[in-house]
């Protein structure tokens, strides 16, 4: 896809920075909505959806970049965490009398905020355990990344099975207080929890950025994704890096799952699995192993999906993400931001 490379070259020549690209895109979107070519509301909702996808895709790309395999169970980690929060809300917190909802402008109550860190922790521990028990053994054996991916398919199925055994297949919901949508200018309506969702996503991304650029283990993670063999030979503790990669990845997936459950106001055992295509589309778009790319890719996938409903049957939204995925894989597998092989 030389168009993109040509754009990049041109951009480099006139010294365009990411900020310039961003402002350009924003301008184009505003113009298009003024001309009624696209509805701004869809773009905004797409960004909210994109925030949720981003939480998932950033974690997914970390694992893909460091451990070099497609973690098919990632979606089901989202599901598991969402249900763990449901459990914490309904059982221990409920019995402690902490049942309030409608915190500030949001539909959920502060108990959700109490439950969330636990789900993150449990997800991280579960991921590390699965790595030690399963994936590390396959790596030591020299199994190809396809076999490891296949194994993660088994893990995905098993995780969903656990969720279904414990909670059954019916739709569940976090205790919530119905709130009105917010009316914003330019005919834009956003759901009440939108600010929470995008806020959490932005804060988490910022935290990840700090972690990767300022902490020793974060830099080691970047180094390992960059060149695994060199990392080992340099003396980097690759087992430690692997552990942290899983912890971050699962932790972010956990947050994504809870955000999704809040946004959709429902939980289903298949919620994470259905999210896999948008997640992978975002990862490939942004370049495997690049969390910033995964964030950008997530926004693109989210917005494209929502905007497409102007012209296509909304039931086909998942196909849009898939189309993006397929096109990227065929034309530019290294993604928009990926520059290396």
């Amino acid at each position: 896809m030389d168009i993109l490379s040509k754009i990049k070259l041109l951009g480099n020549r006139i010294k365009l920075t990411p900020i310039h690209y961003f402002l350009l895109v924003v301008m184009v979107i505003i113009i298009l909505s003024f001309l009624s070519v696209i509805k701004l509301e869809l773009v905004v909702n797409g960004l909210i959806m994109g925030s949720i996808i981003a939480m998932g895709s950033m974690g997914l790309t970390l694992v893909y970049g460091n451990l070099k395999f497609a973690h098919i169970a990632h979606g089901d980690f989202m599901t598991l965490a969402a249900y763990i929060v449901l459990f914490i809300l309904m059982v221990p917190l409920h019995s402690m009398g902490l049942q309030s909802t409608g915190l500030g402008p949001f539909t959920f109550g502060y108990p959700l905020l109490l439950a969330l860190p636990f789900a993150v922790l449990i997800a991280a521990l579960a991921a590390i355990t699965l790595d030690v028990v399963i994936y590390r053994r396959l790596r030591d054996r020299g199994s190809s990344t396809v076999i490891i991916a296949m194994c993660s398919l088994g893990v995905a199925i098993a995780l969903r099975g656990i969720v279904q055994v414990i909670w059954g297949g019916d739709i569940e919901q976090y205790p919530r207080l119905s709130k009105l949508y917010y009316q914003l200018p330019m005919d834009v309506r956003i759901p009440p929890d939108a600010i929470f969702i995008t806020g959490v996503a932005l804060i988490s991304t910022f935290f990840l950025h700090l972690f990767l650029t300022k902490s020793k283990i974060g830099k080691a993670m970047r180094a390992t994704a960059d060149n695994t063999e060199l990392a080992r030979v340099t003396g980097i503790n690759t087992n430690l890096v692997t552990m942290w990669t899983w912890a971050l990845s699962a932790g972010f997936a956990a947050i994504a799952g809870v955000l999704l459950a809040v946004f959709q106001a429902q939980l289903l055992p298949s919620m994470g699995w259905s999210f896999l295509i948008p997640l992978f589309a975002a990862v490939i778009l942004g370049g495997i192993g690049n969390p910033y790319g995964a964030f950008l890719g997530a926004m693109i996938v989210g917005v494209s999906g929502e905007v497409s409903t102007q012209w296509i049957n909304p039931s086909y939204k998942p196909v849009i993400a898939f189309a993006i995925l397929a096109i990227m894989l065929l034309m530019r597998p290294q993604g928009i931001l990926g520059g290396k092989d």
Binding site: K216, K219, A220, R222, A223, D226, N227, E229, L230, A231, V233, T234, G235, I236, N237, K340
Partner: peptide
């Protein structure tokens, strides 16, 4: 310590970060 023939620096890390990784242990 070992310096491989090819791909012997972390291209996406700065010089300082590369050196920091050298001292990881």
């Amino acid at each position: 310590s070992y310096v491989p023939q090819a791909y012997n620096v972390f291209t996406s890390l700065s010089i300082i970060e590369n050196l920091e990784m050298g001292a990881f242990i």
